[in-house]
């Protein structure tokens, strides 16, 4: 099972609790999260469904550099962190 955890900075705008779910890619993971929590989409993705410029996604400790590549694969027990980037604040 994949675990996704969101920066606490998000909680002041939209509730995004830590979740454990089945997902093979970042896209699948977000699809599940946004289905339950549609408001979260606009906080994490931009209009063209790319990861926001000032949002950083870490998969098993590695920063996802390609904001548009949501097909990045996840491992069966991946840990995903959705953080605010240090830029943009």
């Amino acid at each position: 099972m994949v675990t996704v955890e969101f920066t606490s900075q998000l909680a002041q705008h939209v509730d995004c609790p830590t979740e454990t779910l089945e997902a093979a890619t970042i896209r699948e993971l977000f699809d599940v999260v946004f289905k339950r929590n549609p408001q979260a989409r606009g906080y994490i993705l931009d209009d063209q469904d790319c990861i926001r410029k000032h949002v950083a996604v870490f998969i098993d400790g590695q920063l996802l550099h390609q904001r548009e590549n949501l097909d990045t694969p996840l491992g069966p027990n991946s840990q995903v962190y959705v953080m605010q980037a240090l830029s943009g604040g």
Binding site: Q9, I44, Q48
Partner: peptide, 27 residues
């Protein structure tokens, strides 16, 4: 700065706010 543009609306002079939709550019 991190999470983009958001629009909020209040019907009671700011005592309560509700987040509404923002314009989104089509795919």
């Amino acid at each position: 700065g991190h999470f983009g543009s958001k629009l909020h609306r209040s019907d009671d002079g700011g005592n309560h706010w509700e987040e509404v939709a923002v314009p989104v550019y089509p795919s």
